[in-house]
Design a binder for these strands. Structure first.
Lengths: 338, 338
DNA sequence: ATGATGCCGGAATGCGCTTTCCAGGGTAGA
DNA sequence: TCTACCCTGGAAAGCGCATTCCGGCATCAT
């Protein structure tokens, strides 16, 4: 059906080896005149190589896998965009798996990528320690077979990648909020077993404690918009918000999407940010820029993180190197105190 | 390096053919006892098939390509999510290309997917007619080689896919806005040559005209957040907003992201929506749900569109069928009139 | 009891390409 | 002028798997 390399070779009157060398970058460069003939024939016939066959023959597929929890989440889609850009021009193609936050799906995705002999796998997003065992095992198998693993946001096994300084960045944010004069804090901490969530919570609260401030509560819930919405609804129902307290409450959500959910609940209740409750998130996802009030957060260079990670998978030397990315607190209207 | 089928076969004491039949779904089912032995051996050795080799032998790769303009755009990432879900469980893997809105990159992406012998290509997003020639040509080549093409949001060549009734939906929105009593309209229409943008503009304005209302202006600009922001800034500078007019102005942006940009500019200028200017978008991207004021738009079931398209690529019969999706006007606070 | 009919496992071929390995011719050095 | 070497193109051997064909065996009907 499709035109094969052999067809091109025949048309050009050369051997298949020569055609291969001309068309698909080999160390040996055939005679220019011959090369030109081959190229002309390929052009005329509309030849394009079969990547599967190439992968088989070369034992390398020119593929890189990206595993995210949810591609529709701006956090991950920003990273995906960076990854795509980081790969652009390298001839390496991106395979995407979105796992809907199921640990099993994640392991399955790694298996699939192994099947496709992807040269590298990038894993974005945090996961619980419990899930790690199975994941770690399959990733080790992958590495044993020569695959590179790059983690984004979470260290794991003996892989390399980009580590996000959740701890320190959350602490920095806490510091800034203290400077603004906030003293009453509540934390929406996401799922208990999520490492990322735990680190952000720990960094934030320990900084508070170091300043002699005890957070009034740490609530756990889903690490998502709806999680934030739910927790906030509960909080309001409990009467903790807008009530007569010793100064306004300041809520730290360990992710921006949670903060957005919380904000929605606040609005629905007819309360205002920051007058009735101050609000801070984490990540600085792009959609935050267009909120009103603008929301305080910790900026993570998401796209850059994706780009860096992709670049690391391209260069062999960096296989098990870690790059640490710091978040920058960005103070906006949602935590203003007048 | 890796464990091959032959290794498993040897370990199980059977031929490679038998091992293949057991492990990789063939029409012939070997004896249960033998099958069990093979499976045990595969398990023990940690065998997983080489998808490249399978693809080569089967002449079908189990891959589907998705081409979007920008994966970080919620419009496309929602579609991507749906596509991923639609493919889940079918054994078909998704390859992603994000073209940054460059026509050339789009053609290149199709070429790459052709190389990987993807069974189908999904193309999301609108493009100008000028770009179509090259794209159409390469897609036809693809189809000639047995590839399925599914377009999302824009008909093209003799492919199938999901068509969005931009025209009718925009008209429906115009009707609703008229019902609310709006009479002074401005349209931010995106790039002039974008078919989608043009259709939405046309549908909207023709409905207005049919009701005897002439839009005050149609401004063209980038089909993006920044495009909306820029146009709005210009509009404000020109004094058209908040000035003494015959009733408040109503702005229709042909996409939500443009509306978000416009909203940002309105806020920066210290003006209010809907009091100083009413605002409507198109698409109902997820991030719209958390805006304040909530924004009127035309709801498109984005994820469902992605899912449907993916499903179409899985079933052979649907290769050149078109499904038309209607948008539903959703009236929210941003166009309220008191 | 015997021929026909499945059924099941194995050998062999091919998917399209890369990459040794070879042979031949040209070049340079002696 | 002759030998040693390098360069170039071609033949052939895989890469790992699916699948067609084939032979052997058991089952069934006659």
């Amino acid at each position: 059906m499709a035109v094969r390399l052999a067809d091109v070779a025949k048309a050009a009157g050369v051997s298949q080896s020569t055609a291969s060398r001309v068309l698909n970058g080999s160390s040996r460069r055939p005679n220019p005149a011959v090369a030109e003939r081959v190229r002309a024939a390929a052009d005329e016939l509309g030849y394009f190589p079969n990547a599967q066959a190439q992968a088989l023959a070369r034992s390398s597929a020119g593929l890189t896998g990206l595993i995210v929890h949810d591609i529709a989440d701006p956090y991950f889609s920003s990273i995906a965009r960076g990854a795509q850009r980081g790969l652009a021009g390298s001839g390496v193609q991106l395979m995407l798996a979105s796992t809907e936050r199921e640990a099993e799906a994640e392991v399955e995705a790694v298996r699939t990528f192994m099947s496709y002999r992807t040269d590298a796998i990038m894993l974005a997003g945090s996961r619980g320690l419990a899930d790690d065992a199975a994941l770690q095992k399959v990733l080790e198998t992958y590495q044993d077979n020569g695959g590179k693993v790059a983690m984004i946001g979470q260290p794991l096994s003996n892989a390399g990648g980009v580590r996000i300084d959740n701890d320190g960045s959350a602490a920095a944010l806490a510091g800034e909020l203290l400077k603004l004069g906030h003293r009453r804090f509540v934390v929406f901490a996401g799922e208990e077993q999520l490492t990322t969530a735990a680190q952000r919570t720990a960094g934030f609260t320990s900084k508070l404690r170091a300043a002699g401030v005890k957070p009034e509560a740490v609530h756990h819930g889903a690490f998502s918009r709806d999680g934030g919405y739910f927790l906030m609804s509960e909080l309001i129902r409990s009467g903790a918000v807008g009530g007569p307290g010793a100064g306004p409450l300041c809520l730290f959500c360990v992710s921006d999407v949670m903060a957005l959910g919380a904000l929605a609940a606040v609005r629905e209740a007819g309360l205002r940010v920051p007058e009735d409750i101050a609000l801070a998130g984490f990540d600085d996802i792009p959609t935050l820029a267009d909120q009103s009030p603008t929301i305080t957060t910790v900026r993570l260079p998401l796209e850059e993180i994706g780009r860096m990670t992709a670049a690391m998978t391209l260069h062999n030397g960096d296989a098990d190197r870690w790059t640490v990315v710091e978040g920058t607190p960005v103070l906006r209207e949602s935590t203003r105190r007048d």
